[in-house]
Simulated scan of single mutants.
Amino acid sequence: MDHDVVAAHNLHRQTIFRESDVGRLKAECAVRHLLTLNSESQLVAIPRAMTPDAAMTLIPEFDIVIDAADEVAVTYALSDLCKRRNTPFISASVAGRMGYVGGFCRNAPSYRAIFPALPDRVMTCGDTGVMGPVVAVMGALQAQMVLDVLMDTTPSPSA
């Protein structure tokens, strides 16, 4: 789910996209590319912005929610909803050369429990830039956490 279009300045860190995708909807390009990797996958592109209202209608359908939102307010809204629905929530974020990845909700604390309030200053990609290798590391850790939840490993990121 993403309402944005592919931009050339994102290609260094959003490696699923190609130069030929510039100007096209990210959600549709991602689905098209992933289907070339596994044509038996069942994927749906949702080219719209994630909002609290959109989350309310979509999250009941999913077994796990993976967050890579550009806005921390969306992360709070998704976590709040996942906590209420008892849905595992795996979140990651990068700004500059720093990042985090964490497993929240289900039986673990929510994002809001760990970070009770929005920070006074929120770093954005536009302010700080984003180093592609940091995105790769955080994305790999996030993918591992998602697999751990789906395979019900112990300990689980959302246990």
Rank of each mutant, 00 (worst) to 15 (best):
L141T: 15
Q14W: 10
L25E: 03
Q144S: 14
E61K: 08
R121V: 12
G96H: 15
V149K: 01
K83Y: 08
P88I: 00
V31Q: 13
Q42K: 05
A73P: 07
T87L: 09
A27F: 02
V6I: 08
A143W: 00
T36L: 04
T57F: 10
G96L: 03
P116N: 14
V72W: 02
L147G: 04
T87S: 13
G23W: 14
H12E: 14
N107Y: 09
L118H: 10
F62G: 11
S20H: 10
A117L: 12
L43P: 07
T75N: 09
S156I: 02
I64K: 08
S20T: 02
S20V: 14
I64F: 09
A159W: 15
L35A: 10
V65G: 00
D2L: 05
F115H: 15
D70Q: 11
C125T: 05
M145W: 01
V137Q: 02
M123F: 11
D67S: 09
S91W: 00
E71C: 13
L34I: 02
R48M: 13
V6P: 05
V135K: 02
Q42G: 05
D120P: 06
M123Q: 14
T36A: 09
A73D: 04
C125W: 03
S41M: 08
V65D: 00
S20K: 11
R48E: 04
V134W: 10
V44H: 03
A49H: 09
R121H: 08
T15E: 01
A113P: 00
A95Q: 04
I64N: 06
R112H: 12
I46Q: 04
T124M: 09
H12Y: 05
G103V: 01
L34M: 05
F62D: 01
K26R: 07
V72T: 08
Q42V: 13
V65N: 00
D53F: 04
G99F: 11
E28C: 03
V5C: 15
P52N: 05
M151K: 15
R106T: 00
V22H: 12
S158R: 00
A95M: 09
M145F: 15
P109K: 05
H9T: 06
D70N: 01
T87M: 11
R85S: 10
M56P: 00
F89K: 01
A27L: 07
R24F: 12
P119V: 05
P133M: 08
T128C: 14
V31D: 13
G103E: 11
A73L: 14
P119S: 07
R48D: 05
M151D: 06
H3V: 10
Q42I: 04
A68L: 11
V149E: 02
D21V: 00
C105P: 15
S156R: 11
A68P: 08
V72A: 15
H12S: 03
D2A: 00
R13Y: 07
V74S: 12
N107F: 15
A77H: 12
Q142I: 06
T154M: 01
V74P: 06
D148F: 04
T57E: 02
E61G: 12
A95N: 14
L141F: 10
V146S: 00
V5P: 01
L78I: 06
M50V: 05
T154W: 06
P133V: 05
V6W: 09
R24L: 04
V31E: 06
T153E: 00
V135C: 04
A69G: 14
